[in-house]
Structure formats: C-alpha cells, structure tokens
Amino acid sequence: MRRLALALLLLGATAEARESSFALMSPETQAMQREDSANPGMLWVEEGRALWESAGCSGCHGDVAGMRGVAARYPAFDGAPIDLAGRIAQCQEARQHRIPFARDSGEALALAALIGLQSRGMPISPPDDPRLAPALARGEALYRERRGQLDLSCAQCHDANAGRHLAGSSIPEAHPTGYPLYRLEWQGMGSLQRRLRNCMTGVRSEPYAYGAPEYVAIELFLMRRAAGMALETPAVRP
C-alpha cells in the first residue's frame, strides 16, 4: 500500500514536472486560446473544414470527427518516419495523384489544424514502433548538439534554463503540444518546423529545408518527451 502511494506520488511529481508553455503566457493570451470564438487559429480550422470536403479528404475518411486521436500518434513510421503534415502530403500525392499543398502553406496548415483539433485534450501517445528507434536517437542527438555561431544546443535553453528568461521572454520547456499554432509574433499560423527554424536562425545556424528528415527526428524526440501531455491544437502563443 505504501509502495503504491509512493509510486502515485512519483507519477504525480513527474507529471507535474513538465509544463506546457501555455502556463507561461499572460492571462489575456491564455483566454484567447481557451475561447474558440477569440482564437484566430479557428479561422484556419474553418478553412480546413471547407478543404476537407473540397480537397476530397471526406471521400475516403468520411466525417473529420473520425480523425480523433490521429494527431496524438504522430510522427509515425511508414517506410520512413513521417509527421502529420508529411502524411497529409503523402496522401495527396500517392492516393489522390495531385500535387500536395506546399509545407506551411495556408491550406496545409488549415488541414493539419482541423485534424489536430479532433485530438484536442487527448494525451500525446507516440507509437511504440521499434523502427522509429534510429530516428528517435537521431532526434535526441540533434536536440543536444551545439549549433550555430552562438554554439547553443536546444537542451541548453529548454532543459537547463527552462522557466528562466531570455531578454523579456520566458524560456519554455519545448513541448510541442499545440501545433500548428497561431503565434502573435507571426500574425499567423505556423507549424513546428517553422518554430524550429526560428530557433535555429536564433542561434545563427542554418536551418534545414522544410520537410527535412532532421525535423521529423527532432519532432519524434520532442513528442516522446511530451508523451502524456494534453494536445492543445490550435494553440495560441505570444
């Protein structure tokens, strides 16, 4: 009994130890995310809903509500590690025989936001596929690798200094819980890859091209790190 209580306590402690960057935002920005009628990300969701019909997604997948839980399970393995945006593009290319929407285009973000919304509130549950192991290890190595003129790794800010400040901004723990999300600085919607590119140019390193396997590897590692946290798509961030 005591052992069980201790295990629960430890479980509670680890769950509490991680924090979505939602908690670091001002009450006003938090309210913006909480309230769907004030969340600009919902504009993209609405566009996604229209595309779900017009781009032919509903022909195979039926009602979008059937995509519940899907976004919480990516990146997955299909010949190679693939993220949700990559899966949407692959579906368009291989099954619909059309040119997929460009990465981070309004249409691609709209569909990803719509599919992400179906899993809102669900725990991130990355697949336990052994074929993902090499990419996962690569992702962790990239996360801990120093890069750029500032010679900083992701871990140096987001593990060692999370919760502290970089100039006026709080340093979050880098849990990708709400992508694609509406960022006030961008005045628009963006993907995790856009966020990663931001950080890479921030430490003055050259970012990988959109869709590069390195991003999927990092996302894989970050999603594993955030396993069990609730999905927030479409989130709002400052």
Partner: peptide, 9 residues
Amino acid sequence: IRTLIQHVM
C-alpha cells in the same frame, strides 16, 4: 458579440 476575421492588416 464577438467577431474575428481573417485579414493580413
């Protein structure tokens, strides 16, 4: 009443 519209501004 709350309104939100997509525009680049």
